[in-house]
Deep mutational scan, measured.
Amino acid sequence: HNLTITQGKLFFHYNPKLCLSEIHKMEEVSGTKGRQERNDIALKTNGDQASCENELLKFSYIRTSFDKILLRWEPYWPPDFRDLLGFMLFYKEAPYQNVTEFDGQDACGSNSWTVVDIDPPLRSNDPKSQNHPGWLMRGLKPWTQYAIFVKTLVTFSDERRTYGAKSDIIYVQTDATNPSVPLDPISVSNSSSQIILKWKPPSDPNGNITHYLVFWERQAEDSELFELDYCLKGLKLPSRTWSPPFESEDSQKHNQSEYEDSAGECCSCPKTDSQILKELEESSFRKTFEDYLHNVVFVPRKTSSGTGAEDPRPSRKRRSLGDVGNVTVAVPTVAAFPNTSSTSVPTSPEEHRPFEKVVNKESLVISGLRHFTGYRIELQACNQDTPEERCSVAAYVSARTMPEAKADDIVGPVTHEIFENNVVHLMWQEPKEPNGLIVLYEVSYRRYGDEELHLCVSRKHFALERGCRLRGLSPGNYSVRIRATSLAGNGSWTEPTYFYVTDYLDVPSNIA
Rank of each mutant, 00 (worst) to 15 (best):
S203A: 13
S203R: 08
P205R: 12
G207M: 15
N208K: 15
N208M: 07
H211L: 11
Y212T: 09
V214T: 05
V214L: 07
F215L: 08
Q219M: 06
Q219Y: 15
A220V: 12
E221H: 15
D222A: 14
D222I: 07
S223G: 05
S223K: 04
S223I: 11
E224V: 05
L225S: 11
L225T: 14
F226Y: 11
F226R: 13
E227A: 06
L228M: 09
L228D: 12
D229R: 05
D229Y: 13
Y230K: 14
Y230C: 10
Y230W: 06
L232E: 08
K233I: 11
L235V: 09
L235Q: 07
L235I: 06
L235N: 07
K236S: 13
K236N: 12
K236V: 11
P238A: 07
P238R: 06
P238C: 11
S239Y: 13
S239R: 09
S239A: 14
S239T: 14
R240F: 14
R240H: 06
T241E: 02
T241R: 11
W242S: 14
E247F: 08
D250R: 09
D250G: 10
D250N: 15
S251M: 14
Q252A: 08
Q252H: 07
N255R: 12
S257Y: 11
E258L: 12
E260W: 13
S262R: 14
S262D: 15
S262V: 08
S262Q: 10
A263H: 07
A263W: 02
S268F: 04
S268M: 13
C269L: 10
P270Y: 09
K271A: 13
T272E: 12
D273G: 07
D273A: 14
D273K: 09
Q275R: 10
I276R: 06
K278T: 15
K278W: 08
E282S: 08
E282P: 11
F285D: 10
K287C: 09
T288D: 12
F289S: 07
D291N: 15
Y292M: 08
H294Y: 06
N295A: 10
N295H: 04
N295D: 05
V296M: 12
V297F: 13
V299A: 06
V299W: 02
P300F: 14
R301I: 14
T303K: 09
T303A: 08
S304V: 12
S304T: 11
S305I: 04
G306L: 08
T307M: 09
T307F: 06
T307P: 13
G308W: 04
A309Q: 10
E310V: 03
P312D: 14
S315C: 09
S315F: 13
S315L: 09
S315Y: 11
R318H: 14
R319F: 09
D323S: 08
V324F: 09
V324Q: 13
N326I: 12
V329L: 08
V331D: 13
T333L: 06
V334S: 11
A335S: 09
A336V: 05
A336H: 13
F337Y: 12
F337V: 11
P338I: 11
P338A: 08
S342H: 11
S342D: 05
T343M: 07
V345I: 03
V345F: 07
T347I: 13
S348P: 12
E350R: 14
E351L: 14
H352R: 05
H352I: 03
H352S: 06
R353K: 09
P354C: 11
F355V: 12
E356S: 07
E356I: 11
K357L: 09
V359F: 08
N360R: 13
N360V: 11
N360H: 07
L364V: 12
V365I: 01
V365E: 05
V365R: 09
I366E: 00
I366V: 12
S367D: 06
S367G: 09
L369G: 02
G374A: 04
G374T: 12
I377V: 07
E378V: 10
E378K: 08
Q380V: 06
Q380A: 11
A381L: 03
N383G: 02
N383D: 05
N383Q: 07
N383I: 15
D385G: 11
T386N: 07
E388P: 10
E388G: 15
E388I: 15
E389P: 09
E389H: 14
R390E: 02
R390A: 05
C391V: 01
S392N: 02
S392M: 03
V397A: 12
V397D: 03
S398P: 15
A399N: 06
A399H: 12
A399Y: 09
R400K: 08
R400F: 10
T401N: 01
M402N: 04
M402R: 02
P403M: 09
P403R: 08
A405R: 13
A405S: 11
K406E: 15
D408L: 02
I410Q: 03
I410V: 15
I410L: 09
I410A: 08
V411C: 08
P413H: 14
P413I: 02
V414P: 07
V414S: 01
H416V: 14
E417A: 13
I418E: 08
I418T: 12
F419M: 10
F419R: 15
E420Y: 14
N421M: 12
N421R: 13
N421K: 12
N422K: 12
N422Y: 08
N422P: 01
L426M: 13
M427G: 15
M427F: 11
Q429C: 14
Q429R: 04
E430T: 07
P431V: 05
P434Y: 03
N435W: 00
N435P: 01
G436T: 05
L437W: 03
L437I: 13
I438V: 12
Y441L: 01
Y441V: 02
E442P: 01
E442H: 07
S444A: 03
Y445H: 08
Y445K: 01
Y445D: 00
Y445L: 15
R447H: 07
R447P: 11
Y448C: 09
Y448T: 14
Y448F: 13
G449F: 10
D450V: 13
E452A: 12
H454L: 10
C456T: 02
S458H: 07
S458C: 14
S458Q: 06
R459T: 06
K460V: 12
K460P: 09
H461K: 09
H461P: 03
F462M: 12
F462Y: 03
A463C: 11
A463I: 08
E465N: 09
E465M: 07
E465R: 04
R466M: 11
R466H: 11
C468T: 03
C468I: 07
C468G: 03
R469K: 03
L470N: 01
L470F: 03
L470M: 09
R471M: 05
R471H: 09
R471A: 15
G472K: 14
G472I: 09
S474F: 11
P475K: 09
P475G: 10
G476T: 01
G476K: 00
G476C: 00
N477Q: 04
N477P: 05
N477G: 08
N477F: 04
N477V: 02
Y478S: 00
Y478P: 01
Y478T: 01
Y478A: 00
S479I: 05
S479Y: 02
V480I: 13
I482D: 01
I482C: 03
R483Q: 04
T485E: 15
T485A: 15
S486M: 00
L487S: 14
L487H: 00
A488D: 03
A488L: 04
G489Y: 11
S492L: 14
S492I: 11
E495T: 11
P496L: 13
P496Y: 15
T497W: 10
T497G: 08
Y498K: 12
Y498C: 08
Y500K: 11
Y500A: 12
Y500N: 12
V501D: 02
T502V: 13
T502A: 14
D503E: 06
Y504L: 14
L505H: 09
L505V: 09
D506I: 12
V507T: 12
P508V: 11
